[in-house]
Amino acid sequence: KELVLVLYDYQEKSPREVTVKKGDILTLLNSTNKDWWKVEVDDRQGFIPAAYLKKL
């Protein structure tokens, strides 16, 4: 499984997104879309802008 580091706080703006904090380490589920990556946060799955994440 691939992990990503959150570079900036992000507040979800729709039900398909998730809220994260800078410094969080998340499981990356899908990065095929270059703009929005799907991650897992506390048993929730959702999207975050790829620019907010860095692969570890």
Rank of each mutant, 00 (worst) to 15 (best):
K1E: 09
K1W: 13
K1H: 11
K1Q: 13
K1M: 12
K1A: 13
E2L: 10
E2F: 10
L3D: 04
L3K: 12
L3E: 06
L3H: 10
L3V: 08
V4W: 06
V4S: 02
V4Q: 00
V4E: 00
V4K: 00
V4N: 00
L5E: 10
L5Y: 10
L5M: 11
L5K: 06
L5I: 14
L5A: 05
V6D: 00
V6Q: 00
L7D: 01
L7A: 03
Y8M: 13
Y8L: 10
Y8D: 09
Y8A: 14
Y8I: 08
Y8K: 15
D9H: 06
D9K: 03
D9Y: 04
D9F: 03
Y10V: 01
Y10G: 00
Y10H: 04
Y10R: 03
Q11R: 12
Q11C: 12
Q11Y: 14
Q11G: 07
Q11T: 15
Q11H: 14
E12K: 14
E12H: 08
E12R: 14
K13M: 12
K13Q: 13
S14L: 08
S14G: 13
S14M: 08
S14H: 14
S14Y: 07
P15L: 11
P15F: 08
P15Q: 10
P15W: 09
R16V: 10
R16E: 11
R16Q: 14
R16P: 06
R16W: 15
R16T: 14
E17R: 05
E17G: 13
E17H: 06
E17C: 06
E17L: 05
V18F: 10
V18Q: 02
V18P: 02
T19M: 04
T19S: 15
V20E: 00
V20N: 00
V20R: 01
V20Y: 05
V20M: 02
K21D: 03
K21N: 09
K21E: 06
K22S: 08
K22P: 02
K22C: 08
K22H: 06
G23I: 00
G23Y: 05
G23K: 02
G23E: 02
D24Y: 08
D24M: 15
D24G: 06
D24W: 15
D24H: 08
I25E: 03
I25F: 05
L26V: 13
L26D: 00
L26Y: 05
T27A: 11
T27V: 15
L28K: 01
L28H: 01
L28R: 01
L28W: 01
L28G: 01
L28C: 09
L29Q: 03
L29E: 03
L29N: 02
L29C: 07
N30D: 15
N30Y: 07
S31F: 07
S31G: 11
S31H: 10
T32S: 13
T32E: 15
T32N: 13
T32Q: 12
T32I: 10
T32W: 09
T32Y: 10
N33Y: 09
N33Q: 10
N33I: 06
N33L: 09
N33D: 15
K34D: 10
K34I: 10
K34P: 15
D35S: 14
D35Q: 15
D35F: 15
D35I: 15
W36A: 03
W36F: 07
W36I: 04
W37S: 02
W37V: 02
K38F: 14
K38I: 15
K38T: 08
K38E: 15
K38D: 03
V39S: 00
E40H: 08
E40F: 07
E40W: 09
E40C: 12
V41F: 10
V41Q: 09
V41W: 07
V41H: 12
D42A: 14
D42Y: 11
D42R: 11
D43K: 11
D43A: 12
D43R: 11
D43Y: 12
D43I: 09
R44L: 06
R44G: 06
R44D: 04
R44T: 06
Q45P: 06
Q45T: 13
Q45C: 10
Q45W: 09
Q45G: 06
G46V: 14
G46K: 04
G46S: 04
F47R: 03
F47H: 06
F47C: 11
F47G: 02
I48A: 15
I48E: 00
I48Q: 00
I48L: 13
I48T: 08
P49G: 02
P49E: 03
P49A: 03
A50Q: 06
A50T: 06
A50K: 08
A50E: 03
A50C: 08
A50F: 03
A51L: 12
A51H: 15
A51W: 13
Y52G: 07
K54Q: 14
K54V: 13
K54S: 10
K54G: 05
K55M: 09
K55L: 14
L56A: 04
L56M: 11
L56N: 03
L56R: 03
